[in-house]
Design a binder for these strands. Structure first.
Length: 487
DNA sequence: ACTCTAATAT
DNA sequence: AATATTAGAG
């Protein structure tokens, strides 16, 4: 097993690197046994924590649904790891059709993954050859496809945001029609609407599918694969950097949240990217205020407070059935975590409390608590108690309060310097943020545009940043009255 | 033991 | 940039 992959997996699962691990010795660090056994098996890692338990066979309907969701090119071993039956996939798989729309880098990554696995399992030579053959074949097909696409584009300027497929799986139910359905969905949900639908179907139009889409729609798996094999994920390489950072950040961090800090920066990045990918992919088609959280692989979500150890357990437990994304929404920040992590030998070790994310909901609570308490009593401890959030510490509040006050002070002094009102500290004036640009539902977030389709965009750009968002979006400057694009 | 601010770390 | 942590003083 490539050391890189081990690292990536560990990072993905938030496992701390064992400093004593010597890659050259071919040993897998003890902590790697925390990787779900089935995943470990899929990646050829030795597992110390006992043999993987056999997964229940999915029904055919499940398989087909999952196939429509995740695509057909999953590494069989991975499918096993994630609870799919490879054989059934193979049976329902249509060897050529799914190759047509794939971007090259993606294919290569998959092929590389597949090749890697095969090398693990068996003799390398023949396998390599067949893989190479497949690659060559694929390359040929892709080449032709690309050429045809280009021709089609010349004929009718129909563009396609290559990676913009809305990742909510719901629509397609059968494998073959799935991609067509996806394109259909693209047309209706993204802003490519006009261009795509208005373009008169050229003679090539029927033969050439306009939108190469990701067949692999479980973001965690995808990201895991890419991370494990050090491939940049095309969708996130291509999408503007602003995407998740701005509107989706509260949700993105959420899932990432329940994982312990990891010293490995690269792995951290991978995990964060995975979380972001998951967020975008799952779409959140409903308003953030509604619905419940879905637990599957998102330890951070849930209406009920989460115990950190439970989150760990959930993360480490391979899911038996495909975690079909259930639309969920930003909920109140709920978190409470244990303080120990179980190690292989049964002992425990203190782990770092995950960094708190001040979601809008949480901040709202904070603000109302502050207001309720009044200037005098609005001190960290009181606020903490008033908020009554499980797991929220005084330090959390103190830190936030510090920033809150700073902003508040700055706002006051800048907006009314001449006024006689220059308080010393802890000013809890009335809200000066009457400046409400009220952006008329204009700008789509790039992220939502790119990654999750229209429904999500409507909701990930929730309110026009009212007063409560001041802390989270500090730039509610009175000067920039107009745009304030989704910050 | 708590709070505050500033500075610094992650 | 956002949050955590720490220091030092009250």
């Amino acid at each position: 097993m490539a050391y890189d992959a081990v690292q990536a997996l560990q990072g993905f699962y938030g496992i701390k690197e064992d400093a004593s691990f010597d890659p050259s010795a071919g040993l897998v660090p003890l902590t790697s046994s925390l990787i779900p056994p089935l995943v470990a098996q899929a990646f050829g890692l030795p597992t110390l924590g006992g043999a993987p338990t056999p997964q229940p066979q999915p029904t055919l309907a499940q398989t087909q649904h999952a196939q429509s969701v995740y695509g057909t090119m999953m590494n069989p071993a991975l499918m096993g790891a994630f609870g799919f039956s490879g054989a059934q996939y193979a049976a329902t798989m249509q060897p050529q059709s799914h190759l047509a729309g794939l971007p090259m880098g993606y294919l290569q990554a998959l092929a590389a993954a597949s090749q890697h696995h095969q090398q693990q399992q068996q003799q390398q030579q023949q396998q390599q050859q067949s893989t190479a053959a497949l690659l060559a074949q694929t390359a040929g097909a892709l080449h032709a496809h690309t050429a045809a696409l280009a021709a089609a584009a010349r004929a009718a300027p129909a563009t396609s945001s290559a990676m913009s497929q809305p990742l909510m799986p719901a629509a397609s139910q059968d494998g073959t029609a799935g991609r067509a359905a996806s394109c259909e969905q693209d047309r209706t949900t993204t802003t490519a609407t006009a261009r795509t639908s208005s373009g008169p179907p050229s003679s090539l139009g029927a033969a050439v599918r306009p939108t190469p889409s990701l067949p692999f729609q479980n973001p965690l798996m995808v990201q895991n694969l890419y991370a494990a094999f050090a491939q940049p994920h095309p969708a996130y390489v291509q999408s503007p950097a602003t995407s998740f950072a701005s509107t989706l950040a509260p949700y993105a961090v959420h899932s990432y949240y329940a994982r312990p800090h990891d010293a490995n920066a690269a792995a951290m990045a991978a995990a964060a990217a995975a979380a972001a990918a998951a967020t975008s992919a799952y779409g959140y088609p409903q308003a953030p205020s509604s619905a419940a959280c879905n637990g599957a692989f998102h330890p951070g979500y849930g209406a009920t407070p989460l115990d950190y150890s439970a989150a760990l357990a959930a993360a480490y437990r391979p899911v038996a059935a495909p975690a079909i994304p259930v639309p969920s929404s930003g909920q109140q920040q709920c978190q409470s975590m244990g303080e120990e992590e179980y190690m292989d030998d049964g002992s425990t070790r203190a782990i770092k409390r995950p960094r708190l994310v001040w979601t809008p909901q949480l901040h709202k609570k904070f603000e109302s608590a502050v207001h309720k308490l009044g200037v005098e009593k609005a001190v960290p401890k009181n606020i903490m108690q008033e908020m009554n959030i499980d797991g929220l510490t005084r330090e959390n509040v103190a830190s936030h309060l510090q920033k809150y006050r700073m902003l508040r002070r700055r706002d006051v002094t800048s907006s009314e310097g001449r006024d006689s009102d220059s308080r010393t500290a802890g000013t809890k004036r009335s809200e000066p943020e009457s400046t409400r640009p009220a952006p008329a539902a204009t700008t789509q977030t790039t992220s939502t545009l790119d990654c999750s389709g229209g429904a999500a965009s409507a909701l990930t750009v929730p309110q026009p940043i009212s007063s409560s968002a001041a802390l989270l979006a500090p730039s509610s400057a009175p000067s920039s009255a107009t745009a304030t694009p989704v910050m």
